[in-house]
Amino acid sequence: MTPAPSSGWNAVVVPSTPLMIAAGGTADPLAGVRALALDSVRWLVASSPDRIQVLCSPADPANVARGVTTPLGERVARSLLSAAGFDREIVVSTSESESPVSTGVLIVGDGSARRGEKAPGHLDDRAFTFDSTIESALRACDADTLATLSVDLGAELLAAGVPAFRALGALAGGAEHTCEMTYSGDPLGVQYWVARWQCAS
């Protein structure tokens, strides 16, 4: 049993795209977003040098059936943590009812992938309202809203981060945080955020 932290915890939200791991091509359209994500992960590591708790969605069952069993979010987290020089314990949580086990929590998740006609999931107008709700809750450190995000609507809108955001909401409970969001955008038709939650206590 991993012990609970003795003090409050900080959290960072980063996108869950494989392009957070590597560009894959000569051009690197998410270089700026990746740099911001890495900055925030470094900040998180500085406040939790011994253990990081990762919240991400479970591996896509279809990908598991194809032989890929490690959740994408976990791979993104490990890549960013490695790039930040972190080589200590990583505790990965893919369920929505977690307790804080570290003073540093890394949430890997994003909003809808249906934010345009060329988006991965084509256009669904409901994506904008749904993502606005998530973004407002992230900015306000509104745990209740995050904890009760609709799983079904999130799935319809290809918002892969919903399980991780719900887990963050459940984790946050009554803890007090302040948010600094350093990125919000959908350059490839998927809503990405980079945000820091700093423990207020």
Partner: peptide, 11 residues
């Protein structure tokens, strides 16, 4: 050689 730009299926 690397592809020039790769985002398809990865966003």
């Amino acid at each position: 050689r690397q592809p020039a730009r790769v985002t398809r299926g990865l966003a």
